[in-house]
Design a protein around this nucleic acid. Structure first.
Lengths: 201, 201
DNA sequence: ACTGCAACTTGCACTCACTGCAAGAATAAT
DNA sequence: ATTATTCTTGCAGTGAGTGCAAGTTGCAGT
């Protein structure tokens, strides 16, 4: 996995280290004192950086606590989905795609777990987490437009996007309920099963 | 309907008028200039109020643009759901409950429509809108706990809550796609149908 | 090693959202 | 009429987030 391989480039390595240091400091301080009683100044100085630099790494304080970053979908998974695959059944392929997003989502599983825990005590973080899903769904909806050419569907993009977002969050919650066994993607099938169960009540 | 009945109380009437004036001003200015180029000071002075008073009415600028308010569920609908009804099938009853929320959601349909339109140009508002759904879902999850006693379900509260949120948003989007015919609740069955269609692909 | 280049950090000054508080005005209750 | 309540507002403050320009540091080509 690419996350355990430190980049040979000195610049990139430092960037990565500083990023992790900021997340670590943010999570620790917020865990101790609460989201509103920790300033960006404190977080950045705990990480040995200036407040101004903090905002070169994250758009907001909340983003740092969650360790939010841009995630890029695996090119192969992407191409396959656009072509109408891999199975040809939309719901199944959507599951594959969501799995693709989830695996690339979090390079550091410990920080991901701490982020999930902090969401329990700080509801604002949940909202930010969901908002971040929105960005992913934005990319997904582009793919849907392309896939439509290969394999049209009577379901509109909005619904598909919302279901994808629901599955991401449901997987994360199932992961938390399990006591953080394995990673979030391992609980995706469970999330799908729950959804089907409800719909077929 | 209670929304068209102005309260006899002078205080309450003024409160209502000022609230609507703030939403109206916020929506107009943001529509003209964009969310980040309008200040709270401008909105409140356009409504003839002080900036400080603005924050007595709304928690944030975004909330004013969306016209967000507390919504209370009809007591009868609530009691029926908790008792395990009205149909006894969870998904069906959930639909009834969501309909109950949607009908009480927006006292002013024109402002609701303008809010939906502004969400297209201002993605941040979408996030806030979804965040507001979260609060409703919070109340819903309390009801689920009680309903469980009368009628247990193998589906966990989180999934049910997320589906309820999805249905609210999907209804709103279907309403928008229809060119704002009727109200949002009229498009709830369509939203459910789309969801089922996807799951049964 | 020298040099020019690009990326990164930082300080500075600034805007503005949002809050607590306390005083004053308007309204309701008695 | 007077007392109590509720609402508005000004004031002073905190802190998030941004643009800019100057400095610093690693990188590439020669």
């Amino acid at each position: 996995m690419p996350s355990s391989t430190p980049p040979p480039n000195a610049r990139a390595r430092q960037k990565r280290e500083r990023r992790l240091a900021l997340i670590e400091a943010a999570q620790r301080l917020v865990g101790e004192r609460g989201l509103d009683d920790v300033t960006v100044e404190e977080i950045s100085s705990a990480a040995g950086l200036s407040p101004r630099t903090f905002f070169n790494y994250f758009d907001s304080k909340d983003d740092a606590v969650l360790g939010i970053q841009e995630i890029e979908l695996d090119a192969e998974v992407r191409a396959q989905f656009v072509a109408g695959g891999p199975s040809g059944r939309l719901m199944t392929d959507l599951e594959t795609l969501v799995a693709g997003f989830l695996t690339n989502a979090d390079p550091n599983i410990e920080q991901g777990e701490r982020a999930m825990r902090l969401m329990v005590s700080e509801p604002r973080l949940v909202q930010r987490h969901i908002a971040w899903h929105q960005r992913v769904i934005g990319e997904l909806e582009e793919l849907l437009g392309e896939r439509r050419k290969a394999r049209p569907s009577p379901v509109d993009d909005d619904t598909i996007g919302m279901v994808a977002g629901l599955l991401m969050r449901a997987s994360a919650l199932a992961w938390a309920r399990s006591g953080y066994e394995g990673d979030a993607v391992a609980h995706l099938p469970e999330a799908v099963a729950q959804l089907r169960l409800l719909l077929d009540d």
